[in-house]
Design a protein around this nucleic acid. Structure first.
Lengths: 206, 206
DNA sequence: GTCTATACGACGATAGAC
DNA sequence: GTCTATCGTCGTATAGAC
């Protein structure tokens, strides 16, 4: 009960929580919310299933918590890109790089979870609306960069938000593709941005 | 037991099977395999849950059957595109149109199922390998069209299979996006093909 | 803080009546 | 061909020992 011990305990608690959360992200991502069992999550972290409830109140609560955390990180990333001292093209390149890197697999798990949360049915309406709102903030942030790029003349014309949607569709589609194969598969930022750039297809204009 | 009656029975049987299969596709797509309950499938078709097992031997069997059927249809579509008397660009336009139309929602459900099958974990290895092989046939078919288009000078340079992957990533990403929103959202074939076409971004070359 | 044992509910699948 | 009733299993969540 000395302060010293309490700190030790807190350290262990935090570590276990993080291990379980990390494991949960992977299991949710690979199996989906319904199919990912508590025992999958705990055993992947080499802990007993009973311990799960020492750290979280329910599977669903953890799921929601994790999704929101991931989305918050993604929004932060987009905002970070917006604040860079770079051209809009440079910002998009930085953002695309950052999205597709980040210890590879880990990042893929997290993004797949975003997709699951957006496209599946097991969340109740209020939570789902909140998720969608968070996602929209990310889209808006990207749209801002694109709009800027249009003014600079680097990007093609069109509704910025729609273009942002197309960009994310491609980026997410490629993330999924990458998740499926064991081979690393090189993801070229340039190729992802190809569809945005103005007459930029390899500079093959005439 | 007269022939007449047998025909009637067969007709009913076929109809019920189709209703259940249709319902299953929607439920699997919206909820995922694990979360889609037998009772969800049957009640959505206004039938009792017991009846399910009169028509199918198990949930998993139906799931696999449905996935393979959908993939076979997709492959057929791609091959059909390949055989058209059109330019490669015309073929891609036709294919993209066909993929994104088809009673809208129905088509979306089916494509989401493809994604689920490819990216989830609940299929055993042999089945999964078969699914992947089927999908590869579709990708190859698209790559063939793209290669043709490169020779005609309509499409940008690059490995055809990789470009096909990018194309499908975008197409799938947009399908998902469309699945999420209640609003119809216009999907422009031209915009989807934008990333493939050579210096074709609105014809803004100089 | 971590574990094992157990209560309880849900769902896939079957049996049998109509 | 369709339904309701039921079994058996599995998974979430809890209780309590260490």
């Amino acid at each position: 009960m000395t302060p010293k011990n309490e700190e030790q305990f807190k350290k262990i608690r935090d570590q276990r929580q993080q291990e379980l959360r990390r494991s949960a992200i992977q299991m949710f991502s690979q199996k989906g919310f319904a199919a990912a069992k508590i025992s999958d999550i705990t055993s992947h972290a080499n802990l007993s299933h009973g311990l799960f409830y020492h750290y979280f109140t329910s599977k669903e609560e953890l799921y929601i918590e994790v999704i929101q955390e991931i989305l918050a990180d993604f929004i932060e990333l987009v905002e970070e890109a917006n604040e860079l001292q770079k051209s809009s093209l440079g910002k998009m390149e930085w953002l695309t790089d950052a999205t597709h890197s980040g210890s590879i697999r880990e990042g893929v798990y997290r993004h797949i979870l975003i997709l699951q949360a957006l496209y599946s049915d097991h969340l109740n309406e209020p939570v789902k609306l909140e998720i969608v709102a968070l996602y929209k903030r990310a889209v808006d942030g990207i749209a801002t960069i694109i709009q800027e790029g249009q003014q600079e003349g680097h990007f093609i014309e069109g509704d910025p938000e729609e273009l942002a949607t197309y960009h994310l569709a491609l980026a997410h589609g490629l993330l999924l593709w990458n998740a499926r194969t064991d081979s690393p598969i090189e993801l070229s930022t340039e190729k992802v941005l190809r569809q945005l750039k103005r007459s930029g297809n390899g500079g093959m204009c005439q």
